[in-house]
Structures are given as structure tokens and as C-alpha cells.
Design a protein around this nucleic acid. Sequence first.
DNA 1: CAGGATCCGCTTTGATACTG
DNA 2: CAGTATCAAAGCGGATCCTG
Lengths: 121, 121
Amino acid sequence: MSEQLDPEMFSACGNVVLPMRTHNKWAFRIMVCLEPGRRRFSELRIPLREITPKVLAESLRAMERDGLVTRTAYPGVPPRVEYELTDLGRSLLGPMRVWCRWAEEHLPDLVAARESYDTAV
Amino acid sequence: MSEQLDPEMFSACGNVVLPMRTHNKWAFRIMVCLEPGRRRFSELRIPLREITPKVLAESLRAMERDGLVTRTAYPGVPPRVEYELTDLGRSLLGPMRVWCRWAEEHLPDLVAARESYDTAV
DNA sequence: CAGGATCCGCTTTGATACTG
DNA sequence: CAGTATCAAAGCGGATCCTG
């Protein structure tokens, strides 16, 4: 076995390991939607079916705040707003793909573990 | 620009892309703590300072349910319980490291974006 | 069309105290 | 030691209605 864990292990990194804790439910998918190019608000709503406009707007604003997407509003009627990944946002696509590949590969195991755990109780 | 987004894009994958949505605040750190080897409940509490026993117990049980850790209770007094990563859990360390490397590299950008966004409002 | 405002409820997180 | 019980607070997601 190994020695004691360092008590200061995490003292330097606030939420460093997981900066996108909140607004995650949709952020991943939104980024996937934006990967091929810029999209309008209502275009995003189509694949994200169950999302309400409020939540989509909130998620996009949080992502804009984090510098992951840009929001461009074109004046005029009807209004038009487009969202696009920033360089920072695009740099996240790599790690995301790694994560997704893990999920594709191992999700059945996880689901199976969950089921056997639940039936055992 | 690109064509319309496929409305069925996500219809097949429930929460596939992010299976560990909840219980994430601590799960990442717990996995880091368990990487070198098995640990007892109270050993884990040391680096995870602010965590309450209740939340640690909950997080560990959720991770056990997902097949990421095993829980081994040794009978006797005083009680002793040890937690250890499963193969499935260990398989997640790679993707996690990728994610952490991104965070180390780009978190300053993200924080800066956040600050400039906040002062702009 | 792209959201903002309001209200509501579930879930997650936490502080504190207690127990086999 | 390794948790559980209880209570309280916050976060998160959604329904509905409204507006420039």
C-alpha cells in the first residue's frame, strides 16, 4: 500500500479539475452542435428537443461567460443571433471526444453495474 | 456554412455523453485519491477537507453503483472499510487526465474570460 | 425571432448531531 | 471508525406568459 494522502492535495485548485460543473447537461451537446459551424438560436433548439428556451439561453450565456462561445446579434427585424465556438471552445473538443469515446466504449458496463447494484438491493 | 442539424442527433443517447453528471463535484477528486491504491473512509476525508461524511458516503455509494469503485467492509471492532478503483474506474483515469490537462492549460483563459465578462456587465 | 420575467418543484449539497 | 438522521439551503430545470 501507499503512504498517507497529502492533506494539501487539492488546496491549490478550486474547482480546477472540473471547471464546467454547472450547466453541463446541455453544454456538451451544444458544443457538438456548434462544432461544424455557427448556428442560430432556433437551429440549436431542433436537435436539443426537450430544452426550453430559457435553459438554452442560460446555458449559452454561461458558455459565453466562460469564453467558449461568442454571441453575435444582428440588428434588424426579425432579430437574428448566431453562436460560434471560440478557439478556447474548440480546444475543448479534443478532451470531449476522449470522454465520449470512453462513454461509448464503457457505458454498457456502467449501466450493467448500475442494474446489478439496484437489483441487489 | 453547413446544412441543417439532424433533429435525431441525440435521440439515441440518453445521457450518454456525460454519464457522471451528478456527484461530480467530488467524484473526480475521489478517483484521484484512489489512484495510488485502496483507501479507508477516513483517509479520504483528509485531502477532501470540506467534505462532510454524509456527502462522502453518498458519493462513494453512487460510484459503487456505477461500478467505478468497490467497497470492502472488514468485520470487527473498530469497523474498517476500504474503497478501491475497479477496472472500469481505472479505465476512466485516462480520459480524466486528458480533461485535467486541458484544465491546467486553459483554465487561466477561462477565468480571464469570466472576469472580463463580469466587469463588462 | 430570440429571449426575459416569474413562479414552482425536484434534486443536490451542507451543517449538526447522533449511533452500531 | 464509518457512517446515519434530521433539517435547512442552494442549485438546477422547467412551464407559462410576455416583449422589442
